[in-house]
């Protein structure tokens, strides 16, 4: 099986960041707390991983006020969408075709 490991994006490869990207791929946008609950991680842990994704322009983080309360929203960017799609395709290529297809 020929597989180029370099196509696996190191930024997305971390388990927490992969979970963030997967969630955002279908949710499109999420509030910080909702994301934290879905991932079962701490505030600090989530912030650290979001920062790394933000640095790569895979997500955008916006802060505003709703009913005088701060609200943080995370959205997947077009760049992030492309990178995530490439990552999933890379993983699928790594696993290879189903056993019966190998025969």
């Amino acid at each position: 099986m020929s597989f180029d490991y370099r196509i696996i994006d190191d930024v997305i490869h971390s388990r927490v960041r992969l979970a963030i990207m997967s969630y955002l791929a279908t949710a499109r946008e999420a509030e910080f707390v909702a994301l934290k609950k879905a991932l079962k991680v701490s505030d600090g842990n989530l912030s650290t991983h979001l920062k790394k994704l933000e640095e790569k322009n895979y997500v955008t983080v916006s802060k505003n006020f709703v009913d005088n309360k701060p609200q943080t929203k995370i959205k997947m960017s077009a760049e992030g969408e492309t990178a995530f799609k490439a990552y999933v395709e890379g993983l699928a290529a790594m696993i290879g075709p189903a056993p019966e297809e190998n025969k």
Partner: peptide, 21 residues
């Protein structure tokens, strides 16, 4: 590990899809 990752992706995508926002 790749299979685990794909399982995680599937699970999280499902969670995101069902988000009642």
């Amino acid at each position: 590990s790749a299979a685990d990752d794909l399982a995680l992706i599937r699970r999280m995508m499902n969670a995101g899809r069902q988000k009642a926002a």
